[in-house]
Measured scan of single mutants.
Amino acid sequence: MDVFMKGLSKAKEGVVAAAEKTKQGVAEAAGKTKEGVLYVGSKTKEGVVHGVATVAEKTKEQVTNVGGAVVTGVTAVAQKTVEGAGSIAAATGFVKKDQLGKNEEGAPQEGILEDMPVDPDNEAYEMPSEEGYQDYEPEA
């Protein structure tokens, strides 16, 4: 019985440690998101679009440190934060509304985080759909 109880105690310690790591990862992701939003706020009209992409990228980098179902929630929060940063930029006159959601080359930025393969159960990952990809044929 002692062996059984000791095993359960060790398992509990492992769960607590994993929860603490997840909590730490979420806190880091939130900190990076805040950094990115402050970065966007300090940019001029020309830099705002690039700044919004930076927020998304920093958040995406930190999301990889967070495991399990938390990833889905962090990704949703990050996307809403990026959308909010863009709205703030438009409201303050840093950028025109028609410039939001495009990178410096004018290509749409939507789907940055949505296409990231995420499995809350950590069982399997699927690649994003290939609808947006084109076949590449090298020139002879």
Rank of each mutant, 00 (worst) to 15 (best):
M1Q: 00
M1I: 00
D2G: 01
D2C: 04
V3T: 00
V3K: 01
V3D: 01
F4L: 08
F4N: 00
F4C: 02
M5P: 00
M5Y: 01
K6R: 05
K6M: 06
G7H: 06
G7C: 15
G7E: 04
L8H: 00
A11I: 15
A11N: 00
K12P: 00
K12M: 15
K12A: 10
K12Y: 15
K12L: 12
E13G: 06
E13A: 14
E13T: 07
G14D: 02
G14L: 11
V15F: 02
V16D: 01
V16C: 12
V16T: 06
V16P: 00
V16W: 13
A17G: 05
A17H: 05
A17L: 06
A17I: 05
A17K: 11
A17Q: 11
A17Y: 03
A17N: 08
A19M: 05
A19L: 15
A19E: 00
A19P: 00
A19F: 15
E20D: 06
E20V: 03
K21M: 14
K21I: 08
K21P: 00
K21T: 05
K21W: 08
K21L: 11
K21S: 09
K21A: 12
T22W: 15
T22G: 05
T22A: 13
T22D: 00
K23E: 00
K23Q: 10
K23G: 01
Q24W: 08
Q24V: 06
G25F: 14
G25I: 10
G25Q: 15
G25R: 13
G25H: 15
G25M: 10
V26L: 08
V26T: 01
V26M: 15
A27R: 11
A27D: 01
E28I: 06
E28K: 08
E28S: 10
E28D: 07
A29C: 10
A29G: 02
A29V: 11
A30K: 02
A30L: 14
A30V: 13
G31C: 01
G31R: 08
G31V: 04
G31D: 06
K32W: 15
K32P: 00
K32V: 09
K32Q: 03
T33F: 13
T33N: 00
T33V: 15
T33C: 03
K34N: 01
K34Y: 04
E35Q: 05
E35T: 10
E35N: 14
E35P: 01
G36I: 15
G36N: 15
V37K: 01
V37A: 05
L38E: 03
L38T: 05
L38M: 12
L38F: 08
L38V: 08
Y39T: 03
Y39P: 00
Y39N: 03
Y39I: 09
Y39V: 06
Y39A: 02
V40S: 00
V40K: 01
V40H: 02
V40R: 01
G41M: 14
G41E: 01
G41R: 09
G41T: 09
G41P: 00
G41S: 12
S42L: 10
K43R: 14
K43Y: 12
K43W: 09
T44K: 01
T44R: 01
T44M: 13
E46N: 11
E46H: 05
E46L: 04
G47P: 01
G47S: 14
G47T: 15
G47W: 11
G47N: 10
G47A: 15
V48A: 04
V48G: 01
V48K: 01
V48P: 00
V48C: 06
V49T: 09
V49R: 10
H50V: 04
H50F: 15
H50I: 03
H50Q: 13
V52S: 02
V52R: 01
V52C: 13
A53T: 04
A53S: 11
T54D: 01
T54R: 15
T54P: 01
V55S: 01
V55P: 00
V55T: 02
V55W: 14
V55Y: 12
A56W: 13
A56Y: 14
A56M: 15
A56R: 09
A56C: 09
E57D: 06
E57M: 05
K58L: 12
K58G: 00
K58W: 11
K58H: 11
T59Y: 15
T59L: 06
T59M: 02
T59P: 01
T59D: 00
T59E: 00
K60Y: 05
K60T: 04
K60C: 10
E61V: 10
E61I: 06
E61S: 09
E61P: 02
Q62G: 04
V63T: 02
T64D: 04
N65K: 08
N65A: 09
N65F: 09
N65R: 12
N65L: 07
V66P: 01
V66N: 02
V66K: 02
V66L: 11
G67C: 11
G67H: 07
A69G: 06
A69W: 10
V70A: 03
V70L: 11
V71P: 02
V71D: 01
V71T: 05
V71Q: 04
V71W: 15
T72K: 07
T72D: 09
T72S: 09
G73C: 14
V74C: 11
V74A: 08
T75D: 03
T75W: 14
A76C: 11
A76G: 05
A76H: 05
V77H: 01
V77K: 02
A78G: 04
A78W: 14
A78Y: 14
A78C: 10
A78T: 08
Q79N: 10
K80F: 15
K80Q: 05
K80I: 09
K80C: 04
K80W: 14
T81Y: 14
T81G: 04
T81L: 12
T81D: 01
V82M: 11
V82F: 13
V82Q: 05
E83I: 14
E83V: 14
G84R: 13
G84V: 13
A85K: 02
A85G: 09
A85S: 04
A85L: 15
A85F: 12
G86D: 04
G86I: 13
S87L: 14
S87E: 12
S87A: 11
I88S: 03
I88C: 05
I88L: 08
I88V: 04
A89V: 14
A89P: 03
A89Q: 06
A89D: 03
A90V: 10
A90K: 05
A91T: 06
A91W: 09
A91L: 12
A91F: 13
A91D: 03
T92M: 03
T92W: 14
T92H: 04
T92A: 07
T92I: 04
G93Q: 03
F94T: 06
F94K: 05
F94I: 06
K96D: 07
K96C: 15
K97T: 11
K97D: 15
D98Q: 08
D98G: 13
D98T: 12
Q99I: 12
Q99H: 12
Q99S: 13
L100D: 14
L100G: 07
N103Q: 10
N103H: 08
N103K: 09
N103R: 06
N103Y: 06
N103V: 13
E105N: 10
E105T: 13
E105F: 07
G106L: 05
G106T: 12
G106A: 12
G106K: 06
G106I: 12
A107Q: 05
P108W: 07
P108S: 07
P108A: 05
P108I: 04
P108T: 11
Q109I: 13
Q109Y: 10
Q109G: 03
Q109W: 10
E110S: 06
E110C: 06
I112A: 03
I112N: 11
I112Q: 07
I112M: 05
I112K: 07
I112E: 05
L113F: 12
L113T: 08
E114N: 13
E114V: 09
D115Q: 09
D115E: 13
D115L: 05
M116V: 02
P117K: 10
P117Q: 13
P117M: 06
V118P: 09
V118R: 07
V118S: 08
V118E: 12
D119S: 04
P120H: 08
P120E: 06
P120Q: 13
D121C: 08
D121F: 13
D121K: 09
N122G: 02
E123M: 06
E123A: 06
E123H: 10
E123G: 14
E123Q: 11
Y125N: 08
Y125E: 07
Y125L: 08
Y125S: 06
Y125I: 14
E126L: 07
M127G: 04
P128G: 06
P128M: 12
P128N: 07
P128C: 04
S129R: 04
S129C: 06
S129A: 04
S129M: 12
E130L: 08
E130F: 10
E130Q: 10
E130P: 10
E130H: 10
E130V: 15
E130S: 03
E131R: 06
E131W: 03
E131K: 10
E131Y: 06
G132D: 09
G132N: 14
G132K: 09
G132R: 14
G132P: 04
Y133V: 06
Y133I: 02
Y133M: 07
Y133P: 13
Q134Y: 07
D135I: 10
D135S: 04
D135E: 09
Y136F: 15
Y136E: 03
Y136W: 13
Y136L: 10
E137F: 10
E137C: 07
E137A: 06
E137I: 04
P138R: 05
P138S: 08
P138K: 05
P138C: 09
P138E: 04
E139A: 09
E139S: 11
E139D: 10
E139G: 06
A140G: 14
A140V: 14
